[in-house]
Simulated scan of single mutants.
Amino acid sequence: MRPDITITIPVPFLPLHEYCRLTGTAIGTARDMIRDGRLPVRNKSDKPRARVEVNMAALTVEALSGCAISLNAQ
C-alpha cells in the first residue's frame, strides 16, 4: 500500500513580481512564459488593468503529473 502524502499550497495565486522574486526568474522571461503558455495565470476577465497573478495550484499539479504517483485533488 502506498503512503498518503499531503501537499499544501500556501497561496494559490502569486503576483507576478513575487513569483519572479521567489523563483529567480527575470520579469521579462516570466512575461514571455505567460505569452507562450508555459506559465499559467489567473484569468483577469473584464478587468484588463488588474495585476497579473501566477496560478501556483496549476503549476503544482503540472509538476506532480510528471511523477509516477496517483493524484487526488481535494
Rank of each mutant, 00 (worst) to 15 (best):
L16S: 06
R21D: 12
Y19T: 00
E53H: 04
K44I: 03
A26S: 14
L22D: 09
L14R: 00
R42I: 08
G28I: 04
D36P: 01
T23C: 02
T23W: 00
G37A: 07
R31G: 02
R42N: 05
A30M: 03
K47Q: 13
T29E: 06
K47P: 02
K47H: 13
G28R: 07
V61I: 13
L39S: 03
G28M: 01
R42M: 14
T8W: 08
L22R: 15
A58D: 12
R49W: 05
L39V: 08
R42V: 14
T23I: 02
G24L: 09
R31I: 04
D36V: 07
G24K: 08
D46R: 10
I9W: 01
T8R: 15
P12H: 09
L22W: 08
R42L: 15
K44Q: 10
I9M: 10
R31Q: 15
R51F: 08
I34Q: 05
G28H: 04
T29C: 08
T60A: 14
T25I: 07
T6L: 14
T23Y: 01
E18V: 15
Y19R: 03
R31L: 15
C20Q: 03
I9S: 07
G37K: 09
S45A: 13
I9Q: 05
T25A: 09
S45V: 13
D4W: 13
V54I: 12
P15T: 07
T25M: 11
L14A: 08
L16Y: 04
N43K: 10
I34Y: 03
T6E: 08
F13H: 09
V52N: 00
P10K: 11
M56D: 00
P12V: 08
P12K: 07
R51P: 11
I7V: 14
A58G: 03
R42P: 04
T29L: 13
K47I: 10
G37I: 09
P12D: 06
T8L: 15
G37C: 09
